[in-house]
Amino acid sequence: MSLDACAANVQRGDPDRFLAVMAAPVAARARLLPLYALNLEIARAPWVSTEPMIAEMRLQWWRDVVTEPTPRAHEVARPLHDLIQSAGLPLDVLDRMIEARRWDIYRDPFEDQAAMDAYLEDTGAGLMWLSACALGAAPEAEQPVRAYGWASALASYLRAIPELAARGRVPLVDGRSQAVSQLALRGLIRLNAARRTGVPRALRPALLAGWQAEGLLKQAARDPAAVAEGRLQLSDFARRGRLLWQATTGLF
């Protein structure tokens, strides 16, 4: 029931986000790790069983954790509860982030592009806004943080397309090359909009988790076939170099 357990879970299950949090200032890590550990728990919940009801129960368990006034004896739930209380995290954002993962349980495609956009908004953008809130974000920072989070979520989602398809899901509303390229360009537009608006330096550790977004989205826009073929990735040099640059400069 400690931050060490959260860190160990994130390191094993979400190594890219673990690298990002370790590049953040030490004080920020204690605020980010419980949220990243929660994200890992709810992202895995739909896949741990072939029985939809079990997955539904796991997600409901986490919804209850978020709203209950007393902490549960769980290695992630306890530090998460403490963070919710100390940072005053918005419970509605947490609930939508968990609820959105119900889509992963079933094999139904997104109803339309707006539904997919909402999924990215509630999952990735919601997580990045919660991370910023944990670092003391004011309401006026929400729009740029969410825009950057949405772009980052899209980049990660595009990278997961082959695995989702292999598991019998229909991950894209329109999988044609032109549509994938246009989707990636939409992500780049949101990323650039976040830059134009700006985010206070104190909140920028929350944005480190999106350090690969720009490179991945540019690659997807230029070479959309890389998405379905599982080639959407940055070189190790580019990955680490970009993270180092973002962490040291504070730019995003």
Score class of each variant (00 low, 15 high):
A238Y: 00
T67W: 10
A24C: 00
V227E: 00
T70Y: 01
Y148V: 06
L35W: 04
E99F: 07
A45F: 01
M128F: 06
V10W: 01
A194D: 05
T249Y: 01
A238S: 12
R58L: 09
R72P: 00
A27H: 08
M53D: 06
V173Q: 06
E75Q: 12
E41L: 02
G241Q: 01
L244W: 14
P79D: 06
I84Q: 13
F252L: 15
L203S: 08
E229Q: 15
W211D: 14
R107G: 05
M128Y: 09
M116F: 09
R44M: 02
L234T: 04
G136T: 02
A132V: 00
S181F: 05
R240P: 01
E41M: 05
Q85N: 13
P171M: 13
L94F: 12
D64Y: 00
I189W: 10
R96D: 15
A8R: 14
P25C: 02
G126C: 07
R44Y: 00
A220T: 01
R29S: 03
Q233M: 11
H81F: 09
L91G: 04
D4V: 10
A45C: 00
A202S: 13
Y119Q: 03
G187I: 00
V173G: 02
I42F: 03
S177G: 14
P162H: 02
A132Q: 10
R190C: 07
G124L: 05
S156Q: 14
P139S: 08
A202Q: 13
P15G: 01
D92G: 08
S131H: 03
L35N: 09
S49L: 02
A134D: 10
A87M: 13
A138P: 11
L94T: 03
H81Q: 10
K218H: 11
A30D: 12
Q178G: 15
P71E: 04
G168W: 00
K218Q: 13
A238W: 04
E163M: 13
S86R: 15
D117A: 12
E142L: 05
A221M: 05
M22H: 11
E56R: 05
V21W: 01
T67L: 14
L164P: 05
M97Q: 15
D92C: 05
A43R: 11
L19I: 09
L164K: 11
D112N: 14
G241E: 01
D223C: 11
L135H: 03
E51K: 08
I54L: 15
W129M: 10
Y36T: 09
R169L: 14
V66K: 05
L185T: 15
L135M: 04
A24G: 02
L83E: 09
V21T: 07
P224I: 08
A147T: 04
A55V: 06
R101D: 09
Y119K: 01
L207A: 12
E214T: 08
R190H: 08
E214N: 06
Y148I: 09
N39K: 11
V199N: 07
V66Y: 10
A160W: 00
L35A: 04
A137G: 09
Q85G: 13
C6M: 09
A226P: 03
R101I: 14
A209Y: 09
V173N: 01
Q219N: 06
Y106I: 06
S156L: 12
L40Y: 06
R12A: 14
V65W: 02
T248L: 12
A226L: 12
E111I: 03
Q11K: 12
R78Y: 11
V76N: 14
Y36P: 12
R96L: 06
L216F: 08
P200Q: 07
A153S: 10
A194P: 04
